[in-house]
């Protein structure tokens, strides 16, 4: 799988903020759901990296990844959100993001495209979403054909000691 991000609208290339009104999102699939994270928060997308499990670590920690000489903690995003485990054979893609001065790799199922969406059109999460979604997302965007959940990277990557 290619690690490049395809862009849909021309504004998403380069500066993602369009006069402060639009935010670029990397869209991704997670257990069949469409989610998005702000493109500026994503350092890079890595595929096929070897994840070394860390014994005794909490379930949300998938392991460590060697990212060009840096050790990056891989987060099992499905487990963090309380979703079912991915099928063992499934290929995992990782979004590398920084939080609290450390790098993390968020494991996701598939990375799609970059969308530029108006910042003021984010809506509250529908009430029937579970507690985990409530904690780790900032809201939803109504796209033409479906909903996109905006993940809260800071919350996803903050762990209580």
């Amino acid at each position: 799988m290619s690690a490049t991000l395809q862009t849909q609208s021309s504004q998403a290339v380069g500066p993602v903020f369009d006069r402060g009104e639009e935010i670029g999102f990397v869209t991704l699939m997670l257990a069949g759901m469409l989610c998005g994270v702000p493109v500026l928060a994503v350092r890079e997308v890595v595929t096929n990296s070897k994840i070394v499990r860390v014994p005794l670590a909490p379930a949300e920690i998938a392991g460590n990844i060697n990212l060009r000489g840096r050790i990056v903690t891989a987060i099992d995003t499905r487990s963090r959100l309380g979703l079912d485990q991915a099928p063992a054979a499934a290929e995992r893609v990782a979004l590398v993001a920084e939080a609290n001065g450390a790098l993390y790799a968020l494991l996701i199922d598939q990375v799609l495209e970059v969308l530029s969406l108006p910042a003021d059109q984010i809506e509250e999460l529908p009430v029937n979403f579970g507690a985990a979604w409530r904690t780790y997302s900032k809201g939803v965007h109504r796209l033409a054909d479906r909903l996109m959940i905006v993940l809260d990277l800071q919350a996803l990557l903050s762990f209580q000691p």
Partner: peptide
């Protein structure tokens, strides 16, 4: 290399390395 903050409460590890 120091272990990530998330893993620091596992007392059996003193660090990690490549």
């Amino acid at each position: 290399k120091p272990v990530a903050t998330v893993l620091r409460n596992i007392p059996l590890f003193g660090g990690n390395t490549i």
